[in-house]
């Protein structure tokens, strides 16, 4: 049940950081998209990542999720250095993400989309597919039941049998987030999850973020709408030209000069 949007940090003391990214640099050829950015995220906290277009927000997310190898710097997750790990290894450790252009498996139904995530790497082994052990069967049943629950929670049970390619933009976003939840993330990276989404769904996604956070999941969300950021984030990080230029509560960041400068520059 999604709760009222209330800022948790006041009541619940954050524990040790689940993610510590330090001095991250990401380069594409000659372009330095992220130039020595550092960021730590404790659990549970919803952190907003804002900044003008081309600031390097998506690139920082890619460095954390493993889609881009950081040219330098360290990513520590849950006390382990994951800088060198490929993305699927990081996902198995609990870093899940959505993409700026929603990633949905077009040739799979929504329900199957969730199952892919829910069964995980162990449920998708060839040995299991060949042997079909009772243990695997039990696991598949449990995952299917769980997927049904997640669909209900996101109020998208009615599209369970639709193919990914048949979904609307907003439905794709919801499916993508629901899919991440099937893997029980410890850290959820959301790259502009509200873009192209109908207004009533924007609110719903925001509520979901708070609800997810309450299950002790840290969330890093990239978003351009200040309204959304203000209503769901415990903390806001500002990026410009590949660097982190401000970090603090929504109010303090809004008061600061740096944000205005970054957006006007």
């Amino acid at each position: 049940m999604p709760t009222e949007t209330s800022n948790l940090s006041a009541t619940q003391m954050p524990s040790a950081p689940v993610l510590a990214a330090s001095d991250i640099c990401v380069r594409y050829g000659g372009v330095e998209a992220v130039a020595g950015a550092s960021l730590t995220i404790p659990t549970p906290q919803v952190v907003g990542l804002i900044g003008p277009n081309g600031a390097g927000k998506s690139s920082l997310l890619a460095a954390i999720g493993g889609q881009s190898r950081a040219a330098s710097g360290r990513v520590t997750f849950d006390g382990e250095d994951v800088t060198q790990l490929p993305p699927h290894q990081r996902a198995r450790r609990g870093i899940l993400r959505t993409f700026q252009t929603a990633s949905v498996f077009d040739g799979l139904t929504v329900f199957e989309n969730l199952l892919v995530a829910g069964l995980g790497d162990q449920g998708s082994r060839l040995r299991g597919a060949l042997l079909r052990t009772p243990a695997l069967h039990a696991r598949e049943r449990a995952t299917a039941a769980r997927a049904a629950r997640v669909l209900e929670e996101f109020e998208i049970s009615h599209i369970a049998d639709h193919y990914g390619r048949e979904l609307s933009g907003g439905q794709r976003r919801l499916v993508e987030i629901a899919r991440c939840l099937m893997r029980s993330p410890k850290l959820l990276l959301l790259d502009e999850p509200m873009v192209g989404v109908a207004p009533h769904l924007v609110e719903r996604i925001g509520e979901h973020c708070r609800a997810i956070c309450e299950r002790s999941v840290a969330i890093l969300i990239v978003e351009h709408s200040m309204e959304v950021i203000g209503s769901i984030c415990d903390r806001v990080v500002v990026m410009a030209s590949g660097e982190v230029i401000d970090d603090g509560s929504f109010a303090s960041v809004m008061k600061g000069e740096s944000v205005r400068e970054a957006y006007l520059a």
């Binding site: 990633s103 892919v116 069964l119 790497d121 082994r125 597919a129 899919r179 991440c180």
Partner: peptide, 28 residues
């Protein structure tokens, strides 16, 4: 047919549709 409905095959199809998306869910 046995492989057809398996999690293995589903993961394979997922990677066919979106490689980056599948990897981000832990599929190799």
């Amino acid at each position: 047919r046995g492989l057809g409905g398996s999690g293995w095959q589903r993961a394979l199809r997922a990677a066919r549709d979106d490689e980056a998306g599948a990897r981000a869910l832990g599929v190799n």
